[in-house]
Structures are given as structure tokens and as C-alpha cells.
Simulated assay, not measured.
Amino acid sequence: MFKSVSSSLLWRGLLAVAIGVVSVAWPNVTVGAMVILFAVYAFIAAAADGARAFAGRSAGPVIGYLLLALLDVVAGIAAIAWPGITALVLTIWIAAWAFVSGVIEVAMAFRQGEEAGERAMWALTGLVSIALGVVLAIRPDLGAVSLAAVFGLFSIVYGVSTLVLSAQLRKAGSATQNLAESVG
């Protein structure tokens, strides 16, 4: 168990650092990519909802899924037609995500059985995430390009702290395995 969780944290940390470096180096590209990814997601969701509409046996779900597919298509077209507004909405959405995930990470710092270093890392990542969410929510008008740079810095800090947690978990797993072998 320790190995799979620590490996997951390792890959998550490496990905966060890589995304952070790209976001800081090319913030305009990052904003454009976020808008395009949202549009692609909306079109894929439309196709899935359209397919699901005809998978049911009654007319009620067909109409509901077709309406969802239509809404998804409209959202994708709107994202492409008005990338600025889409970037602003995504900025607000990311603010909410960062705040909520930060609160959860701070709460995780107070779980029983955690070592002081692990508590500090959970608390640090959570507080950085909360700060990002608050700043973005207070001033979303500062622009999505600023978000890309701040998000990049956040991703780097988050990635490094996740890599540290991965190493600590891997070390704890090795210690547990050595103890189990010496007892057994």
C-alpha cells in the first residue's frame, strides 16, 4: 500500500512541477490551453451525452441527455467565441477549487498519527492553496495571464511538497516492511 500511494504522490508531484514551470514560462500559452481544453471537454461531454440519450428505453432520459448535449455544445462554442470571458469564468472556478482543496489539506494536517513534518507539509500546501483561492476570488479582474503565473508558482510549490510527502511515505513504508520482516 505504501509503495502505490508514494508512487502516485511522486508522479503527481512531478506533473505539478512540470505544469508549474510551463505556466510560469509561457503564461499566455497556458491561458489559451485552458480555454481550448475546456472547449474540447465540452464537445466530448456533448458527444457522450448525445450517445447516452439513445441508450435509454424511455423518452424522458432522451430529452434530458439531448438538452445536456446541446448545453455542452453551446458551452464549447462560447469558449471558442469568447475566450476572454471563458478565461475569467475559469479563473473564478479555479479560485473555488483552490480554496476548497486547501481547506481539505489543512484539515488533513490535523489527522491523528501524522508526524510533525507531514503535518507541516499538508498545512503549507493547504495554506498556499487557500491563499491562491482567496486572491483569485478577490481580484479575478487582474487577468488570467496573472493567474497562469500564480498558478505556475502554486503548482511548483505544491509539486515539491508532494514529492517530499512521497519520499516520507516511501521511507515509512520501508521502515514498516523492515519491522514486519524482523518480527516475522
Rank of each mutant, 00 (worst) to 15 (best):
I80R: 04
I156N: 12
Y65C: 01
A120D: 08
V183P: 05
A16F: 03
V17S: 02
N28W: 08
A18I: 11
A87V: 13
L67I: 00
A172P: 00
S182V: 10
A33R: 02
A79Y: 05
L71P: 04
K3T: 12
L70W: 06
A109L: 05
I19K: 00
V73K: 09
G13A: 06
Q112P: 00
S58T: 04
G126I: 02
G32I: 09
S101T: 05
P61Q: 13
A42Y: 07
A25S: 08
V17H: 02
Y158C: 09
A45M: 06
D49N: 14
L127G: 09
T86L: 13
F43C: 08
Y158F: 14
A172G: 05
E105M: 07
V35S: 14
G173W: 13
A172E: 12
A55I: 02
G32F: 09
P83I: 07
E181C: 09
G32Q: 05
F38M: 15
G143Y: 03
A25M: 02
L71G: 12
V160G: 01
A25R: 01
A107M: 15
V5A: 07
L165S: 08
Y41G: 11
M1V: 00
Y158R: 10
L15W: 08
G102F: 04
A81E: 10
Y158S: 09
L88D: 14
L90S: 11
A120P: 10
M34K: 11
R111K: 15
A25L: 06
M34A: 15
S101G: 06
A95I: 02
W82H: 15
A95G: 06
L136Y: 06
V134G: 05
G60W: 06
W97D: 13
A144Y: 05
I80K: 03
I85Y: 13
W11V: 15
E114N: 12
V22T: 05
I92K: 12
S174M: 14
S23Y: 09
A48Q: 07
F154I: 08
A137K: 02
V31L: 10
L153R: 08
A96N: 12
M34D: 12
A96T: 10
L179S: 05
G184E: 07
I94T: 02
V128P: 10
L142E: 08
A45W: 02
V22K: 05
D141K: 06
A59S: 03
L124A: 06
R139T: 09
A107H: 13
I85F: 14
V89I: 14
L37H: 03
